[in-house]
Design a protein around this nucleic acid. Structure first.
Lengths: 224, 224
DNA sequence: ATTACTATATTACGAGTAC
DNA sequence: TGTACTCGTAATATAGTAA
């Protein structure tokens, strides 16, 4: 029923071609070969295989070829993507972050006290958040795990405009902090933080309640 | 930097193993071979390759083996998944649905006139929706495309409770209808429709404005 | 029933080269 | 510069078996 690749061998090349397609630049067999570290002949054969499998259209010219992925390839991407998602959803229990407590600049407190946010917070998450957030700076090694959040069930606090200023929506992922207190990782639409900072809201003043000091390592576990 | 598979050849087996792992059942080399249509010997070799590549842990017993995917494999799943997502996001311009107009049962009008929905609609989408939705029944062939919606930027209208009744959140995907009028595909948290019906909101009375009749084919194009 | 070794068959790769 | 053919060789899969 759903489109499938008999052999996943072709997948990385298909992914690559899908990416360069957007650039509108032609692909040569030798550039493809260089990219993946095999011979020009192999690249040529792969492109022909992809074409005869109905995964790409090609326009071969004397100075390169224009390659575009087909609808069939796109459908394969989707079916693999959704299969991966369904596997990863079951795997999320293991998602945790370890980072160091850094001082916020007070924006957390500002945002967490906007009445239109607070109301949604109470309504969707069941508590009134402490007016202030815990900011956890993640080391580079933990950073890539942030993308995994998107696969997790979360509450969605919608944005609003107030006095000409617009406040974006916020995704809220249930979590525990140091295995002691529950809260939510906040991922705002427009972050006012660098990407490597995790912002955490809770009913409590987490810093006080957990006696945390600046620079201290904090464990945040997603509890979906 | 991000975990990567030198060869995607192993990916389908890894996916399969990730799925059966959840079942807690053992995998035999011959069952794996049967599943994929190659020899038992090849299955044995693949499992050993996966193990030495650090992608699975194994416990081999005289009557089968228990296989579990490792954290490394999981990270590869995530990196492929996010790569696919980024490619698919750029591809959405091509997402369209073709289905037949069916009569709603009036719920569309009911929902579209709840003040708390209407307010968010005006605020987030910039218009006051016509109190009623267009219901498009999708043929089976179009149905699988619905999953692709999740990759598309959309507005998020949050739910609320009113007189003991709770109204779920609604995802709103910008679209055009018959290439003439703009609107939004509504995907409610708890749908009151069968999965094969697309519900469309607009500023206008779409049925009148486009002179649509029951059973007529309607083209809905996502305009993200 | 299993897993996994060794030897042979099959397939994929790349150098040389034509266009 | 391109692409893509042939063909010798390298890599990979399977058959036959042992444990």
């Amino acid at each position: 029923m759903t489109a499938t690749l008999k052999d996943f061998k072709l997948l990385p090349y298909l992914l690559y071609l899908a990416k360069v397609e957007k650039g509108g630049k032609p692909v040569s067999t030798s550039s493809l070969a260089r990219e993946f570290g095999f011979s020009q002949q192999t690249a040529s054969r792969l492109l022909r295989e992809l074409e005869s499998a109905g995964l790409v259209r090609r326009e071969v010219t004397p100075r390169g070829q224009f390659v575009g992925i087909t609808k069939k390839a796109e459908e394969i991407f989707f079916s693999i993507s959704s299969e991966l998602d369904s596997i990863l959803k079951k795997q999320v229990s293991r998602l945790s972050f370890r980072g160091k407590l850094v001082s916020g600049l007070g924006e957390g407190a500002y945002y967490m006290s906007r009445p239109l946010y607070v109301r949604q917070f109470k309504h969707l998450l069941g508590y009134e958040p402490f007016p202030g957030t815990l900011n956890i700076k993640l080391p580079h090694s933990e950073l890539q795990k942030k993308v995994r959040l998107s696969a997790i069930e979360h509450a969605f606090i919608s944005g609003f405009k107030s006095r000409g200023r617009s406040f974006g929506f916020i995704r809220c992922y249930p979590c525990s902090i140091n295995r002691k207190v529950a809260g939510h990782v906040l991922v705002p639409e427009r972050t006012h933080h660098p990407e490597d900072v995790l912002e955490i809201a809770s009913k409590y003043n987490l810093k006080k309640r957990l006696s945390l000091k600046e620079g201290e390592t904090v464990l945040v576990e997603i509890s979906a």
